Computed example of a mutant assay.
Amino acid sequence: MSAPLIVPGDLGDPRVLRLLEDHLADMFATSPPESVHALDVSGLQHPSVTFWALAEGDALLGCVALKQLDPAHGELKSMRTDAAARGRGLGRLLLAHVLEESRSRGYRRLSLETGSQDFFLPARTLYLRAGFVETGPFADYALDPNSVFMTREL
């Protein structure tokens, strides 16, 4: 089997759509609707957003997006690893890709919003290990007990 590759994501690919549907289903199953900030396909098609897929052969293993908030600040969005592929370090691979892309764009900061529930503990742990620190709301977010806001200076 070939090594996983991160490629521009095709938002019309049924494999991508299934992964995003699974992502949104988990978000709505875990958080109140007003606290779900995951982007749907139309949100990922916005010109400020770049979307990538993680593929290994014909299998789609994950995805991630980067939203430009301003010329110096990006936001990590829609990071997801397929449930069957978890535990392989693919989240670290996706995060490293977005950090590298953020630096190449000249961003000075990368921020994210994730859930405060136990379901999100693996994600929060990954971000902390990658140098993110908890912070307050950024961009259009408001303080929410169901959200954890994190940022990393680049």
Rank of each mutant, 00 (worst) to 15 (best):
S78V: 01
L126M: 05
F28V: 02
W52D: 10
F119M: 01
E100N: 12
W52K: 02
A53V: 12
L121C: 04
E100S: 10
L17Q: 13
P32Y: 01
R129E: 13
E153N: 11
T151L: 11
P137M: 03
S78G: 03
A139R: 10
A3K: 08
H73L: 12
D13V: 03
H73D: 04
S147C: 08
P47D: 01
Q68V: 07
A65I: 00
E100Y: 11
Q45L: 12
T30Y: 02
G106P: 04
N146E: 10
D118F: 00
L66P: 03
A65T: 01
D70K: 07
N146Q: 06
P8S: 06
P122S: 04
T50F: 11
E75F: 13
L95W: 00
V98H: 04
L19F: 02
A25F: 13
L24K: 01
L44Y: 04
Q117L: 05
V98E: 06
D82R: 11
T81V: 15
H46T: 13
H46N: 14
A65S: 13
G115P: 04
A130H: 10
L20S: 07
R105L: 12
T50S: 15
D10T: 08
D40T: 05
V49N: 09
G91N: 04
S42Y: 06
R124L: 02
W52A: 08
G89C: 11
E56P: 11
R15D: 11
L66V: 02
C63E: 13
